[in-house]
């Protein structure tokens, strides 16, 4: 019944969403090693690679979670458009903000970015010149790769746009998680929404600070 009911689908949406959020928090904390310099970031990347089978288990879980979240998102979007076949000629939203109304679209932007990010950083097919330059030091230099990538205004812009989508998506998504798993009570309702904005803001600021640091200080 979890697949058939609206409440069940929202529950799965919330659980897969929160797993991806936890992944993103971990990823962001890992990225922070950038501030300890090139060796720290490269060493962090080496450690991740050294995890071997564990890394693959994690990748498979995250891929499953992502596919489920996207498939459910598309299903919900389609069902919702079916449930309201005729729209109002005049419509004024009272409560729904831009974030909640664009979840599907910000989700698509994030999905497109995840695909691009994996092609760029993990599979390494989009920018051969960068990969060659980064490989020149005996081992693959993630720091050098990030630095060269952010020197391209296009890559930086794509990154910034994707992070903005993450910010908007999470500002609604985190609060929705609490609602969908049934934790929106008299006690939590006061801080859940503010909390979502704060968390989304912190993640956005941290993730964007890295290209900003390259740009401003040429680190």
């Amino acid at each position: 019944m979890i697949w058939q009911t609206s409440v069940g689908k929202k529950l799965l949406m919330a659980l897969t969403g929160i797993l991806m959020l936890l992944f993103l928090v971990g990823h962001t904390l890992g990225n922070l090693s950038f501030y300890w310099g090139a060796d720290a970031l490269n060493a962090y990347a080496e450690h991740l690679r050294a995890l071997g089978p564990l890394l693959w288990i994690e990748r498979l879980i995250m891929a499953g979670v992502l596919v489920l979240h996207v498939a459910l998102g598309i299903t919900l979007f389609w069902e919702n458009s079916q449930a309201k076949p005729v729209r109002y000629a005049k419509s004024r939203y009272q409560e729904a903000g831009p974030a909640s109304r664009t979840m599907f679209y910000t989700g698509l932007v994030i999905l497109a970015f995840v695909v691009y990010h994996l092609l760029h950083f993990t599979v390494r097919v989009t920018n051969p010149a960068i990969y060659e330059a980064a490989s020149g030091e005996g081992h693959f230099g993630v720091y050098r790769m990030a630095e060269m990538s952010f020197q391209s205004p296009w890559i930086s812009l794509i990154y910034l746009a994707a992070m903005a989508a993450v910010l908007i998506h999470l500002s609604h998504g985190v609060g929705s998680f609490f609602q969908s798993v049934g934790w929106n009570t008299d006690w939590t309702k006061a801080w859940v929404n503010t909390g979502s904005y704060v968390l989304a803001g912190i993640l956005f600021a941290t993730l964007v600070s890295i290209p900003a640091a390259f740009c401003l200080f040429g680190m």
Partner: peptide, 16 residues
């Protein structure tokens, strides 16, 4: 919740 789906109501997006 099962009947709600059958009757053609949509899903909640927490728009409030």
């Amino acid at each position: 919740t099962g009947r709600m789906q059958e009757l053609g109501f949509g899903n909640c997006s927490n728009h409030y």
